[in-house]
Design a protein around this nucleic acid. Sequence first.
DNA 1: CCTGCCCATAGTGTATACAAAAATTGGCAG
DNA 2: CTGCCAATTTTTGTATACACTATGGGCAGG
Lengths: 241, 241
Amino acid sequence: MSNQWQETMLAEVKAGGRISDQHIVDMIRQAVLSQRLPPGTRLPEVALGEIFGVSRSVVRKALTRLASYHVITQQPNQVARVCAPDIDETHEIFAARRLVEGEVVALLAGKLEPEQCAVLAGHMEAEKAAYAEGDETARIEHSLAIHHYLADHSPNRILGKMLSELILRTSIVIALYKQPSLASCYLEGDHDTLLARLRDGDAEGARRAIDNHLASLERLLDLRAQENRIDLAAIFGKLGG
Amino acid sequence: MSNQWQETMLAEVKAGGRISDQHIVDMIRQAVLSQRLPPGTRLPEVALGEIFGVSRSVVRKALTRLASYHVITQQPNQVARVCAPDIDETHEIFAARRLVEGEVVALLAGKLEPEQCAVLAGHMEAEKAAYAEGDETARIEHSLAIHHYLADHSPNRILGKMLSELILRTSIVIALYKQPSLASCYLEGDHDTLLARLRDGDAEGARRAIDNHLASLERLLDLRAQENRIDLAAIFGKLGG
DNA sequence: CCTGCCCATAGTGTATACAAAAATTGGCAG
DNA sequence: CTGCCAATTTTTGTATACACTATGGGCAGG
């Protein structure tokens, strides 16, 4: 449990000063988003308390909220863990996100100011560059920034919040089910097509673009016969060690 | 603060036995759904603790979760209150619900077993009867049962959960903005039309039916120039008392 | 009569103690 | 060597104490 993300958080704590449950929620969410803490990771309350320099009360509040957001699972008397949705749930997450993000971009089509489009375009450029350099961490960062930007600027703020949550859950399942053979889940041109439709004010085109994008992304995952995926990993781990 | 719902809850507590935060969440949610606790109601932690016979720890956990579900609002150092969304947010809630519930019924079209349709038909009959008798409480109960049944049986469970939450939030805004002149928000035939489309397996028809239904419902509310709605209530209260 | 300040009260924020449940480890028997 | 049981440790569940913040009412001053 003495991993990388802990040190990152600790550093941030020491720099920032007072820490509230909101900060803890944000940090853990960020760590999950950027796939620094993988699905299934144990999150004991005392350990988190020591890391953040607060008592269990605050940690518990943060964990309760993270559970509401479906970032972690909490079963009675058991340690909280980062969610690890099964295959069925993964399909449902993607379907829900297609619906919600489709509506958000449809609402957004033709409503973005030029400078807002420029922000999106900037992230797209950066994403492309990061992909070219093979910097997958940076690429994910910019890809997420694009989708979160859409969520944050949704004319319907409720759909925006829903989309934020679905982006997070999508990140989790990508971390879980990404085909090991693939170095990246980059889909060349998808984001550019979307931006073009948004600029044109083509609501239905934007919806289709996002729908295609997410469908392609889902296809990049390995979502067959789950059964022993985890058991195999354990076995290989033993053999390798 | 010594209202009706408290007694109902207390009775349930004495009957049931041990109470967990989940029970508290359910009871408060139910009380909000059935409009027994109106928007803006104060929910102090100690009072709730005494009512349910638990300490603030448990109450706090329940409140944290209710805040995540947007049932209550929690601002630092202030007492929790039942949410009272403004007009803009009300429109957004309805728009989100149209999208989500539309998709749910589209997915459900042609997939319901005859006995499931019978359950729905039963609630619709009961709703109609309650309306005829002027029993608005019972009518709301059955109307909610219909929509919750759809949510609970959504093939996509994630959309189902989202719909549940949106139904709850819709109840809140109806309680807030219902035109005082209207005795009921009953829309004759809407639910029957929906059931017919579901039976026929007409996905798009079902989507349209729900969309119409919700649009009509929204139109029954008084969503003009909010400004002094609350102030007026306070003034009338003073004059009346 | 109205306004602004101050204090009493109510209520939340956080830490901590103790109890109970789950996970782990070790040893022991087969 | 394997499987099972028990003791130990880890971890969560709940209550409670104390500190801090907001709220409302009364009082002095204008």
